[in-house]
């Protein structure tokens, strides 16, 4: 995406106070923080080098030292030594982020401290911020989520009792938790399943029990990052107008779709055959599996078997 002069001005005005208060970062580090490229940051710095206050002698210009790209500093920031105030969306992001953190807080006093900070911040931006945008229910309000968040923060191995829906069985798993995420109102955990040696996704509400194991800060780099992604299967289905809701619910596995009149043709990528089988059997309207043929057959048998129960 091409950037406008305004985007550049906004970044430049943020660059000076950031570097002035954090001297000694490299151009590469700065670029990473500003979601930009080192080449762009270098250009910004040489442009800023020409800016300053009326008079524009060496006394009034910004003084930036970027000769050594590994050590950038601002020796004279003039009036730009303090960061700009937060925009409404930035403030909102922090206020909502704090609201989520309250749910993950380890104890009452931490929750109270975060809530106080949240109130202070939304107070600065007027009452309307807090009143107009909210998080309605405690989406992470579960003791399990809280325990997992702590384990992630401390790089701890865990043993969990898990009710697997796709294999419909309860088992004990050794895992290394990586990330909690929410999709369509349901909380999930991405974790490395140590015994299987694979990345797996677990539903929070199907984890019964958690036993905390040893901390291992290097595990992520040493083991998890070395595992290749599992080969995914491509699936194509066709369904009626509620295909829109199917896409909405499962957008993380939808790779493409076509809408033709009242019909949807949807392509998916999944790595668990049992999961997709149950999901398609469970969808409350007819779905035709176009590809692969063996999945179409399995689903047909499964539905026929369920129907046979009622005769």
């Amino acid at each position: 995406m091409s950037e406008t002069a305004l985007d550049r001005v906004a970044r430049a005005l943020n660059l000076i106070p950031f570097i002035a208060n954090n001297p000694g970062l490299s151009v590469v580090e700065i670029a990473a923080r500003f979601n930009s490229t080192p080449a762009q940051i270098s250009k910004d710095l040489s442009l800023l080098h020409m800016c300053g206050l009326p008079g524009y002698s060496h006394l009034e210009l910004l003084d930036i030292d970027y000769e050594d790209p590994n050590y950038v500093s601002v020796t004279e920031a003039q009036v730009l030594d303090q960061p700009r105030s937060l925009t409404q969306i930035e403030a909102l992001t922090l206020v909502l982020g704090l609201q989520l953190l309250v749910e993950l807080a380890s104890d009452q006093s931490e929750a109270a401290a975060i809530t106080a900070l949240q109130n202070r911040l939304s107070g600065l931006f007027g009452e309307q911020l807090a009143r107009k945008v909210t998080i309605t229910d405690a989406i992470v309000d579960s003791p399990i989520a809280r325990k997992l968040a702590q384990a992630i923060a401390q790089s701890q191995h865990l043993t969990i009792h898990y009710n697997s829906a796709s294999s419909d069985s309860v088992s004990t798993r050794e895992i290394f938790p990586l990330e909690i995420f929410y999709h369509d109102g349901i909380g999930y955990l991405n974790a490395f399943a140590t015994s299987a040696g694979e990345l797996r996704t677990f539903r929070l509400d199907r984890i019964d029990e958690i036993l905390v194991g040893p901390a291992d800060a290097g595990f992520l780099e040493r083991v998890v990052r070395q595992v290749p992604n599992p080969g995914d299967n491509e699936i194509e289905i066709e369904m009626g107008r509620d295909g829109f809701f199917f896409i909405e619910k499962h957008n993380e596995i939808v790779t493409s779709f076509h809408e033709q009149g009242e019909r949807f043709r949807i392509k998916l990528r999944v790595n668990s055959g049992e999961w997709i089988t149950r999901t398609l059997v469970g969808w409350p309207s007819p779905i035709a599996v176009m590809h692969p043929a063996d999945l179409a057959e399995t689903i047909h048998e499964r539905i026929a078997g369920a129907l046979a129960n009622y005769h």
Binding site: N14, F18, N21, N22, L25, F34, L104, I180, Y182
Partner: peptide
């Protein structure tokens, strides 16, 4: 927002804290 907070406090070089992300 974080860039501004770091400009305020000069803590851009702090250790990366492990934590749960929420998507």
């Amino acid at each position: 927002a974080l860039v501004k907070l770091d400009a305020l406090s000069g803590t851009a070089l702090r250790e990366d804290f492990g934590h749960a992300t929420l998507s």
